[in-house]
Amino acid sequence: MGLAVLAADDNQFHPPSVGDFFPPALFFEGTIFEFTRINLAQVIATVVLILFLVLGTRRLRVVPGRFQSVVELLFGFVREQVVYQILGERDGKRFLPILTTMFFGILFMNLTGVIPGINIPGTSVAGVPLLLALTAYVLFIYAGIRKHGGLRFLKNSLVPSGVPVYLMPVIAVVELISTFIARPVSLFLRLLLNMMVGHMMLVLFFAATQFFLLNMDWFTPLAAGTFALGFAFTLFEIFVYILQAYVFTILTAVYIQLAVAEEH
């Protein structure tokens, strides 16, 4: 399962570590095509997402069945509560496909963290959150330049209206850092660190359960306690997975809205 577990040779408990996010290669070890358990999680999440969308939309009915209802509910949530609510219908229609893809992609990648045998989110290594953050950044820049042109977009982003002339250089530097550096970095770190910390907490609870149950019989009540905490935290993590997909997508929509606004 890739969890930090008891080492058989020394009978000592080994807590989770950053090493969990650098699992041994499954295929092509030592090459640029090295394939690990985390890559497997990403592939599984992608395949399941494609099947979910294809099977849920290939035979649409006026009176939807249960599966179609679930798919439509999720699509409707992203469209109405995330995209249209922030961008409005006109701008929202332009960015709805990519924002919907972003939401579902993050959600399904996150959920691999609770799949038995994988037990690690596909977003818990830097590559995927970084790619998503760069995508959000490119969308922000593209939306602003297309709406206002390059110079006007840069002026709106760096110098808010009403700023005194003598403060413009200072404000421009502050806005440059906060708008063009802090935003993508915060998107990247928020998703990555939430997934890393959540995985390590789950590892800690279940590794402790294994340790107490298999090696310290008189601590069976503690094993039951850590297992209960692990189960409860698993449910909490599922909520966090959904929340992080929502937060990342809605922040991307907010940044796009700020880019297309007349003034900040």
Rank of each mutant, 00 (worst) to 15 (best):
V254A: 11
Q210K: 05
F188N: 02
L3E: 10
L51C: 05
G105R: 03
A223M: 02
L111K: 02
S69C: 14
G76Q: 04
L26K: 12
L229P: 03
V185M: 12
P129T: 04
L229F: 07
Y84L: 05
L3K: 07
Y255A: 15
A253C: 04
G56E: 05
F206I: 09
A136D: 01
I177G: 05
Q85D: 07
F233N: 01
I86G: 07
E34K: 00
F13R: 06
P184H: 04
M196C: 04
P121H: 13
A133P: 13
S124D: 10
F153W: 10
T100R: 06
V43C: 04
V83Y: 05
G122L: 02
L131N: 13
L204P: 11
L60D: 14
P16F: 03
L134A: 13
A259H: 01
F95W: 10
F67T: 03
E29V: 08
H14K: 13
P23A: 03
L60S: 13
F248M: 15
Y246V: 07
I115M: 15
V125C: 08
L235I: 15
V83A: 10
R61L: 13
F239Q: 11
V5M: 09
A208S: 12
A7F: 09
V43G: 03
G19S: 14
V71F: 08
G127C: 03
L202P: 03
F205Q: 05
L158M: 12
P15L: 08
A4C: 15
M200E: 13
G150D: 01
S178P: 06
S161L: 15
I98H: 04
L202A: 01
G30K: 12
F180K: 00
L214V: 09
L213P: 01
T36W: 06
F233C: 00
F104E: 05
P121N: 04
P221W: 00
G162S: 07
V47A: 10
L130A: 14
F95T: 07
L214E: 04
L251Y: 15
F211V: 12
D10E: 12
L134T: 10
R79Q: 15
H264R: 08
A232T: 09
A207I: 06
P169M: 12
Y166I: 13
R146K: 09
G127R: 04
F233L: 00
H199S: 10
P169D: 05
I120W: 00
L99A: 01
L154A: 14
E237I: 06
A182C: 00
N194P: 01
M109C: 11
L213S: 10
Q257M: 15
A8N: 11
S124R: 14
L6N: 09
S178K: 10
A223R: 00
F227Q: 15
A261I: 01
I177F: 09
L73C: 11
I50T: 08
L214G: 06
F248I: 10
F35W: 06
D9G: 12
F211R: 07
F239R: 06
R190M: 06
D217G: 14
F27V: 10
V197C: 02
G162M: 05
A228D: 01
G162T: 10
V78S: 12
A133T: 09
F104W: 09
F233E: 03
G127W: 11
V197H: 03
